[in-house]
Amino acid sequence: MPKIWTNSGDSHFLEPADLWESRLPRRLADLTPKADKDPDGEYETVRVDGQTFRRKLPTSAAVQFLENTRKAEGIRDARLRLGDLDHEGVWGEVIFPSLGMWSSTFRTPELLKACMRASNEWALEEVASVSDRYVVTAQVSTLVVEDAVTELEWAAGQGFRSVFLPTRPHPSAPDWHMADWEPLWRAAEQAGMVLAIHIGTDPVDLTSGKVGVAYRGPGGAVMNYTETTFSGQRFAMKLVASGALDRHPDLKVLISEGGASWIPFLGDRMREGYRQHHMAVRPKLTRDPKDILMTQVYASFQHDESAVAAYTAMGYRNVMFGSDYPHMEGTYGHTQDTLKELFDGVPVETRLRITQGAFAELFPHVPPAPADEV
């Protein structure tokens, strides 16, 4: 079949389960995440960094998905992964961690710092070294600003071009809009590191008994899934309103898997708030908040028809396709069908901007994708 080639602003890799445990000294390794299933298989007890909580295990549908995911050999093997990508028509891709999604749950700075370095060294050895099509996200501490800056600068020196940050740091650390994080934004801009934010990575509330669940009852599954998208919007809002992006005009942000049509809407709301409540606004910005959001924040989507309209009808140029390989919400196994549906009747220049152009702006070091065959 003729292919539409695309880059992807969102994908995932599954590290070895014992990555941290095997690379850290025992006193720290004992604090890394560990889980024990109940005999009936319905719940498990998780221990992480001196904290214990229980969570419900996946439903039968989710278990079936996990079984199917194991067939995607590239989730664990960076060499086999290239075959999966070629089959799907995906060229370059931003790769997020799996273990690293725990980072905002750690509360011991020394532990988090050590885990992030171990993950970064492993990613360099096992993933980044395999292909220049891979944009592997570095990981940094979100507990201590100085640790984050040190690791970001080290990662940039090793060739990383992007750094993964959770949508919100641990509650014991300052939130992203606070001035404490200014050294990190400055360091990222100077190093040319893209801030890569994946939705749904707010810290886990270990005391609520509702880990991963915001709603129960009728509609809960859809509401819980939808709820995860808002965390990425809040991150973008914080960096615009706090002046972080205004002060660092060369700093770029990628919000992955959260859709794209929310960017113009959020920009309108922020512009209105800034204009109508200007007497109370602090800090004052040198540029319109909507313009900052529309130019410095990129957003990836996988199935949303409205994302294409955000470019064609609302003037948002930084729309980027993301396959979310190989997650349930993603397009693995039907990427070409999805692309052809999304871009049926859409001008070629629009398609190329969304599938390749926006990605190439953020990561110009990735070789160009092959020519489309349609």
Rank of each mutant, 00 (worst) to 15 (best):
P2Q: 11
K3L: 15
I4K: 10
G9L: 11
S11R: 11
P16V: 10
P16S: 08
P25R: 05
R26L: 13
R27K: 14
D30G: 02
P33W: 09
D36S: 10
D38Q: 11
G41M: 07
G41K: 00
G50F: 07
G50Q: 00
Q51K: 11
R54L: 02
K56T: 10
K56M: 13
A62Y: 07
R76A: 08
A78T: 07
R79F: 02
L80G: 15
R81W: 04
R81L: 00
L82R: 14
L85I: 05
I95D: 00
S103G: 09
T105M: 15
T108F: 10
L111M: 05
L111I: 03
M116K: 03
N120C: 04
A123I: 08
E126A: 12
S129F: 00
S129T: 02
S131N: 08
L143M: 06
V144Q: 06
A148D: 03
E153A: 02
V163R: 00
L165A: 09
R168I: 01
P171Y: 01
S172H: 13
S172R: 11
P174V: 00
M178H: 06
A179G: 05
W181Q: 05
E182A: 00
P183M: 06
W185Y: 09
W185Q: 01
R186C: 09
R186V: 11
A191W: 00
G192D: 04
P203L: 13
V204G: 07
D205Y: 06
D205P: 05
T207R: 10
K210Q: 12
Y215L: 10
V222K: 14
V222D: 15
F235M: 07
L239D: 06
A241G: 02
A244T: 03
L245E: 01
L254D: 03
I255D: 07
S261A: 15
W262E: 14
I263H: 04
G267E: 04
Y274G: 05
Q276H: 12
H278T: 03
V281M: 13
P283A: 08
A299M: 10
E305S: 12
E305Y: 04
S306R: 06
V308N: 14
A313Q: 04
M314F: 08
F321N: 01
D324K: 11
Y325L: 09
G330C: 02
D337A: 15
V346I: 09
P347V: 07
F359V: 05
F359N: 06
P370V: 12
